[in-house]
């Protein structure tokens, strides 16, 4: 007769599993953050260069006579660009957040139930290791499955959808704000370094030439 050999009790199993989950989670989190930060740095540079597009026609006109003129025109255009970027997003975000709050309050019994639907029923088994409460086992909670079986599938779809849409809109707002900051930085840089070169991408050419290594330029 087959008798399984138990190498460790269930608590030890969860404990080991929690350490693995923590390590993998940390590595994944750092990797994802690295990718996001790297992409955001590129986006920031692109947003800085967006000022060139805004100001190229004005500089070509030849009507700017001083750094003060350039800063005034660039700041005005940057503010208009910010307004146009958030013109629809901001009210939409407010509407979605208010709607999510109203629906969440009216359709769920309490905050705990709303949170259960918001996290897709994710309910890990918690393990205490050295005072830290870690995830020992990743699983979907039985309450969530029961609620769906009881006909609350619409909540399981509606609540996370509204949350995700609201989050996306808020991120879009933050991205627009970052664009405004990037343009402000670019304005102050161009005021110091000279703004006439932004026509025809000459400033970009200068930047790329400056970035080249000395040995590259010798060749």
């Amino acid at each position: 007769m087959y008798r399984p050999v138990i190498l460790a009790d269930i608590d030890d199993l969860y404990r080991n599993q929690a350490i693995v989950i923590l390590a993998v989670g940390l590595v994944l989190a750092v990797l994802v953050l690295l990718i996001i930060v790297h992409l955001d740095r590129k986006a920031f540079k692109r947003q800085m260069k967006g000022l060139d597009t805004l100001m190229e026609g004005t500089v070509k006109n030849g009507l700017l006579h001083s750094e003060k003129d350039f800063a005034a025109a660039a700041n005005h255009k940057s503010q208009v660009a910010l307004f146009r970027a958030i013109r629809l997003t901001l009210p939409l975000a407010v509407i979605v957040i208010v709607l999510a709050a109203i629906l969440g309050a009216s359709l769920t019994a309490n905050l705990g139930e709303w949170w259960m639907f918001a996290k897709f029923g994710f309910s890990p088994t918690m393990v205490d290791i050295g005072g830290l409460r870690l995830w020992g086992e990743l699983k979907i909670g039985q309450d969530y499955l029961d609620a769906i079986a009881a006909g609350q599938l619409y909540l399981a779809i509606l609540i996370p959808t509204l949350n995700l849409v609201g989050l996306a809109l808020v991120l879009q707002l933050l991205y627009s704000l970052q664009g405004y900051l990037a343009r402000r930085l670019e304005i102050s840089r161009l005021v110091k370094s000279g703004w006439s070169g932004i026509v025809g991408g000459e400033a970009e050419k200068k930047d790329s030439e400056a970035d080249k290594k000395p040995e590259d330029t010798k060749e």
């Binding site: 004005t58 009507l63 003129d69 025109a73 503010q79 208009v80």
Partner: peptide, 10 residues
């Protein structure tokens, strides 16, 4: 309505 046009734009 906020416009990109400034006094420096023709």
């Amino acid at each position: 309505a906020p416009s990109y046009e400034t006094e420096f734009d023709a």
